[in-house]
Write a protein that binds this DNA or RNA. Structure first.
Length: 385
DNA sequence: GCCCTTCCATTGTCGCGCGA
DNA sequence: TCGCGCGACAATGGAAGGGC
């Protein structure tokens, strides 16, 4: 078994779907399976490993087979406007071979777009966050929080909770049965913290009624993994990267929302080697990281371009071959845009740079100068066209 | 690995007191 | 008067341990 952390990636539609018919272990199993999907093809799994993941190690295979059968019957229910919804069968094949202790899976072609080949509105997180949860509502709220991680909050009305998740619990029971146990687990076992505030409807007489909840999300402050820290230091030994001031703890945390740790290490090392001209934007750095990941994917071997001890001085980069020329050489002085100008530039970036609105907004919050430089780079490119 | 039994946590429901 | 917050109680289902 490989030690690499499994990453779950899926469309945000899944985070907003209804899971009222799912049992907790069915949800865990589904997310575990999604974490391994890279292509639209049949998959075979070791049933013992899957039993372990859903916490059925000591259970009979007959019970596990029942879980498989139940999961096969589940559908993904996507809510549309005006109380309309669509349901999707998840699997075209989901079978358990009791003799060989294997599971065979093929995904329904209509379900594939929810787990493959999307370029916006998706969630990405380590499977281990979900594996630690043992409460169905904790998993549901974690998925919803992950889909809204860039907004730092999301809202659910009492009506929505009752309809979607809560078996028509009244407000006090929503607290007791859903929110308290779920948030306790999320805050204890996952990479995020969630606090909840109630929204009241003022009434003429009597006590005000709870009509909804605002969930505030924060990422746990964790020390950067040692290998990322090393990669940061390596990258910043390239003087062009250092001058850009685009790599620091804040920007790394931002990038970790889009890349896994392993990807970021590869990307930063690649950036160290390749960048040999001035730049100012995180967007540009992302392009280089993406190039590094693409190159790695194409070559199918690890990019282990530099070792710490190889780095003598920042000037080393000047002798690097295979240059990538920076597409922006703006100064970092802050300019203010009108909201119309900003919107126009943001739209241009969204259309041309392959980054998400949420990412931009997060950048704006965390690093104003990098954000402004990104807008300026887009403005210059627009002028050149 | 599987089955059976026991224990315990979770879930569903209801009632009561209190505060606005 | 209304509705939240809390607790009590019964039913249900899952986890754990032991025996085969």
């Amino acid at each position: 078994m490989e030690n690499k952390k499994k990453i779950v990636v899926h469309s945000n539609d899944i985070a907003y779907a209804e899971f009222d018919e799912f049992e907790m272990r069915e949800m865990k199993l589904l997310l575990s399976l999604i974490a391994t999907v890279t292509d639209d093809k049949p998959y075979f799994y070791d049933a013992k490993e899957m039993k372990r993941i859903v916490g059925m190690e000591s259970q009979a295979y007959s019970k596990f087979a029942k879980l498989i059968t139940n999961l096969q019957k589940q559908v993904l229910k996507i809510n549309l406007e005006d109380d309309k919804y669509k349901t999707y069968n998840i699997f075209s094949v989901l079978s358990f071979d009791p003799k060989n202790k294997t599971i065979e899976i093929e995904y329904n072609s209509k379900f594939i777009p929810f787990i493959l080949n999307f370029n916006k509105n998706f969630s990405k997180y380590y499977l281990e966050n979900v594996e630690g949860l043992n409460n169905k509502y904790a998993i549901i709220l974690y998925l919803r929080a992950r889909a809204n991680i860039f907004k730092y909050q999301f809202k659910l009305s009492v009506e929505e909770i009752q309809k979607k998740y809560g078996n028509n619990y009244k407000a006090s029971d929503i607290d007791k049965r859903i929110l308290v146990p779920a948030l306790t687990e999320i805050n204890k076992f996952t990479d995020i913290n969630i606090t909840v505030e109630k929204e009241y409807l003022a009434s003429g007489r009597g006590r005000s009624k709870v009509v909804g909840y605002v969930f505030k999300i924060s990422k746990k402050k964790k020390d950067l993994e040692e290998n990322i820290y090393k990669a940061m230091n390596i990258a910043n030994k390239n003087r062009f990267i250092l001058n850009s001031k685009t790599i620091n703890k804040e920007s790394i945390n931002l990038l970790l929302q889009e890349y896994s740790e392993e990807e970021l290490v590869v990307g930063l090392k690649y950036a160290y080697k390749k960048i040999n001209a001035n730049f100012k934007t995180l967007t540009y750095l992302k392009k280089v990281i993406n190039s590094g990941l693409e190159e790695k994917e194409n070559k199918k071997n690890d990019i282990d371009l530099v070792e710490d001890e190889e780095i003598v001085s920042a000037d080393l980069v000047e002798v690097m071959k295979d240059r990538v020329v920076a597409d922006d050489e703006q100064t970092s002085d802050i300019v203010e845009y009108t909201s119309e100008e900003e919107e126009r530039l943001v739209n241009y970036i969204l259309e041309n740079d392959g980054i998400t609105y949420d990412f931009l907004q997060n950048m704006k919050c965390k690093s104003k100068s990098v954000y402004i430089n990104t807008l300026r780079a887009a403005e210059n490119r627009m002028k050149e066209r």
